[in-house]
Nucleic acid binder design. Sequence first.
RNA 1: GUGGUUGUAGCUCAGUUGGUUAGAGCGCCUGAUUGUGGUUCAGGAGGUCGUCGGUUCGAGACCGAUCUUCCACCCCA
Length: 457
Amino acid sequence: MAQKPSIPKGTRDFNPEQVAKRNYIFNTIRGAFETFGFQPIETPSFENSDTLMGKYGDEGDRLIFKILNSGDYLNKANTDAYEEKDSNKLTPSISEKALRYDLTVPFARYVVQHQNDIEFPFKRYQIQPVWRADRPQKGRFREFYQCDADVVGSKSLWQEVEFIQLYDTVFSKLQLEGVTIKINNRKILSGIAEVIGASNKLIDFTVALDKLDKIGEDKVKEEMLSKGIAQEGIDKLQPLFSLSGSFDSQIESLKTILSTSNEGLKGIEELAFIDNAITALGLKTATLQLDVTLARGLNYYTGAIFEVAAPKGVKMGSIGGGGRYDDLTGIFGLKDVSGVGISFGLDRIYLVLEELNLFPEAVNKNIEVLFINFGDNEALFSLKAINKLRANGINAELYPDAAKMKKQMMHANKRNIPFVVLVGEEEINSNTYTLKNMVTGTQDKIELEQLIETVKK
RNA sequence: GUGGUUGUAGCUCAGUUGGUUAGAGCGCCUGAUUGUGGUUCAGGAGGUCGUCGGUUCGAGACCGAUCUUCCACCCCA
């Protein structure tokens, strides 16, 4: 009757080694967040559907996991929608809750709900799992962790500057050198759309533009044309496709292209400010790159847009993203609270570190000393010593059963425990301990203090 | 949501045009060795071939459905 157990597609179990590695990343990110002055909050795994639906676009709505109502949900279902087999119409009547899709929208909800208790500007960080009903593929899961840091209540561009430094700090600490922090600005994208007369098709326009390095110039033009953007408008984009070179020179070219758009010029000004600051401050290992084709999260970003690409040669989608949203809390009724934030994709960073072999050896907090169990008298004597080792910060344990010695040694070996201590009748009588080094295979009969010293090294 | 791909022992994989009791390496268990693991030697256990159904005298192999894996698209961390 035993059924073969399994877990849902796109989810994973983590063994002790994997958890240790994940914690290493979590701790690095958390440490950086805290030194930058962010404070932690947590929100529920699931929210009311109204809070999430409609915030991520149609595509986003499709990817939100809906939770079926409890009880006799069909009884209260929208019968018309049921008859018509209209899932979108039926869903709200049978599902009132949904799993968190990201950490930004729940944060906006949090800010609005607790606005009277929050001292602005409010810098919060949040490290929790999110869920998406996506088809899994490389670096894409249905359950994964996001590590977000956001500031609300300040329009200062110094925040953008700090976030770029935060990215640089975290990836440098993780020894992940050579990441590219791409930056763009929604205002520039709006400006370009305005210049080519496609203001009302901003999303279609940017989605197509975003694919430039993937499908090439011709295909991008094709897609724009098919979305109803006029040929003469597309012709005006020509200088954009050949845009290259340093941050500065791209800025200069953009000034020409966007000379007739006030909004576009504003975007350029913002980017120039950020770039000047970063140039003056310097980055440790990351590179800041202006990428006008970068178009993410347009359903709520209004200013800067960030995306972090793994070092060259690593095939992986973005390992971080973020941006400024001037009115995210507006949809929940709180106006004029500007926010800006970034996110780290833990699971993808993990894959990248694994691929590049960048996890430190020491992440695995293993037991260091195993005491062989020879019987109750010896066990009691051993535990007294173990208590002293533990008090000295040494991870030590006693094998629980007085099993065959071979079995106990084998256990130590399989767990990669570096030291084994043998305490039998002989040792008890002379108040000594036989310490065996499992790597070299050598062993010595020594006193407890000496044992502690040896293991500590 | 669209297209493709994968599934055989705990793990990595073989398995000829459908033909008897489905194999290997590694791992696991027992012993050589009752206070010594990692090496060696001897022996041993372990599979309803993802699941359900169909074709056939006969299916691990062929067909269908379904689940799962990985990949691309859409979108995204």
